[in-house]
Amino acid sequence: MIEILISASFWAAVLRIASPLIFATMGELICERAGVLNLGIEGIMVIGAFAGWMAVYLGLPLWGGVAVAFGAGALFGLLHGVLVVPFGLSQHVVGLGVTLLATATAYFAYRLALPQVTSPPKIVPFQVWEVPVLSKIPLLGPALFAQTPLTYAAFACAGLVAFVLYRTPLGLALRAAGENPAALEAQGVSVTGVRIGAVMVGSGLMAVGGSFLTLSAFSSFFFEMVNGRGWICIALVVFGAWRPGKAVLGALLFAGFDALQIRLQQTPMGAVVPYQLFLMLPYVFSILALVVMSRRAQVPAALMVPYTKGER
């Protein structure tokens, strides 16, 4: 156990596993801070993983694939936003519908594009980019500064989200849409516009999180590769009390569990305990995290409350 925890490869894996979760958690956090629960997250990650990979497979550069993933996610975000914001439909039902639609769309398009493949074709994924000087620090260097560009981007994204949320007028408007939409409307700002915009950008980030799996982690698209990561991100938003910094910590903690269980499977303990038990740990951890944090969570006051202009 101790040997695992002091190895650089363990900590490098933690950051790698956390990266898609950070993108998607930031996406969900933006939606929820604006007052919209987005259960489309799981499907949007699938469509992001597929669209980003497909774009690169068809010849786009890797960053082009990331952009395509963002666009595809934003499109499904627009669908979710239009149905739940102006029309005020149930955010639970529409979100699950969006997840089913986005997942089915990705699978349908995959089979349409590659009808007869048995093993999915590979692309050349993002390579590890060692930060000059910093990556030479013992232990810390190889753990933190020898990652793929998308991992650095995930942490930069979290910083950017925190900055925009707390230090800019845009972030103030977004938080107001989730806390006191009537006050925002009184300022002459369209609550509908802010919320739909937030859901689109948030969904774009979720899709980028999904694309990390195909563009940085695995280099191919598989069915069921997202495997509940979206739902875990919803738990991470609650765990992080709707704050970007805490949510990143949650993602790191979760990734730590995940990285640890993979390594514990290879120890003598792994020979005795069934591997399924190890694989369960991250999900169990997510539920426990929810239980611990739910009591004092600061839920945005207008989360899941549709806003109608002029109505009290």
Binding site: L39, N227, G228, I232, A235, M280, Y283, S286, I287, L290
Partner: peptide, 9 residues
């Protein structure tokens, strides 16, 4: 929502 979803996995 999240707890029932995670229990599926």
């Amino acid at each position: 929502v999240v707890t029932t979803l995670l229990l599926n996995f």
